Simulated scan of single mutants.
Amino acid sequence: MTEQTSTTTRADLATTERSRGGQSSPLQTEHGSTSIADGVVSKIAGIAASSVVGVHALGGGAARAMGALRERIPGASTSRSQGVTVEVGERETAIDLELVAEYGVSVVDLAEGVRRNVIQSVERMTGLRVTEVNIAVNDVHLPEEEPAEPAESPRVQ
């Protein structure tokens, strides 16, 4: 007896979208079409996820380390899409998030809140239908892990 799975893969997104050709979309009108870059969706999703209470940071350990290095470069900006991977089709998008949770927060409640906020933000701002938001909690931030603020030394001694 073989086991069959009923999960839809991301490759199926494009096929599903093509088969729905007759359905209207705010991005596909008789006056033209609008395309949205992956970076736009990942930035919106990153900001929406970061704004949920209980999310300490986005990204895995390596991504956060690279982000910390990037922030030290003069003129460099903080990446709002760190830890966010998206796949954008003509009408739909799928989003994967990696995050660090604050200690003491229910991971189940946090994931639900992040998922809800990301879906609402992306759908409202882009018109794309969010098919899935997969969340990987890869660390828990402990309050004692905060780096101590360096005391300002006087300029002249």
Rank of each mutant, 00 (worst) to 15 (best):
L13G: 07
A14D: 15
A14I: 14
A14F: 14
T15K: 14
E17R: 09
R18G: 06
R20I: 05
R20M: 13
Q23S: 13
S25Y: 02
P26W: 04
Q28G: 01
T29M: 10
T29G: 09
E30H: 07
G32P: 03
S33Q: 06
T34Q: 07
T34N: 01
T34V: 15
S35T: 14
I36E: 02
I36W: 02
A37Y: 02
G39P: 03
G39Q: 11
V40R: 02
S42Q: 12
S42R: 10
K43Q: 10
I44E: 03
I44S: 07
G46T: 08
I47T: 12
S51G: 13
V53W: 07
V53L: 12
G59H: 08
G61W: 10
A65G: 09
M66T: 12
G67N: 11
G67M: 11
A68H: 03
E71Q: 13
R72K: 15
I73E: 12
P74W: 08
T78S: 13
S79A: 15
S81Q: 10
S81C: 04
Q82F: 00
Q82N: 11
V84E: 00
V84G: 01
V84N: 01
T85R: 14
V86K: 04
E87K: 08
E87N: 10
E87Y: 01
E87H: 10
V88L: 03
R91W: 01
R91V: 06
E92N: 13
E92D: 15
A94W: 05
A94R: 05
D96Y: 01
L97C: 07
E102G: 00
Y103W: 09
G104I: 01
V105F: 00
S106W: 04
V107K: 04
D109S: 15
D109F: 11
D109Q: 14
L110N: 08
A111I: 00
A111R: 03
A111S: 15
G113F: 04
V114A: 09
N117K: 13
V118I: 09
V118D: 06
S121Q: 12
S121H: 03
E123L: 04
M125V: 06
T126M: 05
G127C: 05
V130G: 08
T131L: 14
T131S: 15
E132C: 06
N134G: 10
N134A: 14
I135R: 02
V137D: 00
N138F: 01
N138P: 02
H141C: 12
L142M: 15
L142T: 06
P143M: 12
P143H: 10
E145G: 10
E145Q: 15
E146M: 13
P147K: 13
P147H: 12
A148L: 13
P150E: 14
